[in-house]
Design a protein around this nucleic acid. Structure first.
Lengths: 232, 232
DNA sequence: CAGCTACTGACAGTTTTTGTCAGTAGCCTT
DNA sequence: AAGGCTACTGACAAAAACTGTCAGTAGCTG
């Protein structure tokens, strides 16, 4: 087997595994010697490939590098760049930072001669939302959704009525200027949707919930589609 | 020079040029023989690198492949994915298609074990805007900005007053649910900003304009910053 | 058509790679 | 602490790949 092919196969094998793989295993699969595998790994390391090896353990990808490079066309990249500006203006502070990092990466790889004609320069996004209280709530809620923590929330409806709820947060929806939280409400025993700008107070509880086949975001969306068709 | 290094340098040289480069030129720069260059090019072709060569002409990158692959972390990718959803919901139909293509590309490369924990599934974006008249205008305006065509526009202010304007379109701003057009107005001889949802009629003229040091988007933004500070 | 280019095969000399062997060092379990 | 497992490295001879020269084919452009 040609060396270049073997290097690519090592990369593929490393990316397809959660657990470590030893030089012996690689040598068997690729029908070569362990010494050659050690040399190949060194070549990968020299070229910056994020592999790490521990004596007595084996090799694996360094955490955080499981996602391979993506190749976009110029048009797709314009959509990505505009989208990142929107995230910077209308999501939460953490996402805004990630979006800025992503934008810097993109700027770094665009050839100079493509920068002059880059349409994204003419597409701007306002940036006032991130300092609102709704945006602070947004970040807390997003984390609670991911880690599945109950929320206790004081809410004020459009008609001025106040209520207190204990919720299983499931998703966030962006409506342009407004975000809403989709949650299972323990008070009403049903799904409910709440506008983030009407939240009076919010506490992320330390108790975890779990979703199942009857209470989860996918079911709620399916329910909405049955009720309203494809408008959702 | 090592073969692997030379291959990378050929890629770099091809990416840095607008015009073709011959095998002789490559051989001189890389201090090797033309026969070796022909072999290297074949290796690049065999591995899928998008180079094309024409007898009597020379080599160049296939159009559409000037932008190299980009490697995002999981957090950055979350921002990209949310951003693409926002573009799909709140820009124009062309950008929405590009955004969908980009999303498909991303989905194709995310390893299966990372899909389960992918937070983007819980972040949704409403999709009603693209069928509005404002979104149709948005696409026409974006093209006119890029190609620098004058616009003739019938506009209705918030107070109900109608006006007709001839404009040099310079940029589009997203305010969440609303887009505005930044333009140089020939009627007022000054910059003006117009809400897309208040446009009554719009015609893209066949006459081209040109910007200079005094009339362009960057100057306008600088002017705004001097007037309002960093709020813009 | 002439001049330029990309392209390919053959071959001998040069360079790189490979597997075997021996030895070093670290991690994990008992 | 010892043993078994792993990653790691240098040396060397044999095998493989690469390189430049040469000769010839084919296509593009003015």
């Amino acid at each position: 087997m040609a060396k270049a092919d073997r290097l690519l196969k090592i990369i593929t094998l490393l990316k397809g595994r959660r657990t470590v793989i030893t030089a012996r295993q690689l040598a068997e699969v690729l029908e070569t010697s362990e010494r050659t595998i050690y040399r190949d790994i060194q070549v990968l390391l020299d070229t910056g490939f994020p592999v790490e090896g521990e004596a007595g353990v084996g090799y694996r990808l360094q955490p955080g590098f499981e996602i391979p490079p993506i190749m976009f066309t110029a048009e797709q990249l314009l959509a990505v760049q505009l989208g990142l500006k929107m995230v910077q203006g209308w999501s939460d502070k953490e996402l805004a930072i990630s979006a800025e990092e992503a934008r810097v990466k993109i700027e770094a790889v665009i050839p100079d001669r493509l920068k002059e004609t880059n349409q994204q320069n003419c597409l701007l996004v306002s940036k006032h939302y991130l300092n609102t209280e709704a945006a602070q709530h947004s970040l807390s809620i997003r984390r609670a959704i991911q880690q599945q923590y109950y929320l206790t929330m004081a809410y004020k409806k459009a008609d001025g009525e106040h209520s207190k709820r204990v919720l299983m947060p499931l998703g966030l929806v962006y409506w342009g200027q407004k975000w809403t939280l989709i949650a299972w409400c323990l008070l009403r025993h049903d799904y409910r949707e709440f506008r983030l700008d009407r939240i009076q107070a919010l506490v992320v509880e330390s108790e975890k919930f779990s979703t199942d086949e009857s209470i989860n975001l996918t079911s709620y969306l399916k329910l909405l589609r049955e009720l309203y068709g494809e408008q959702c």
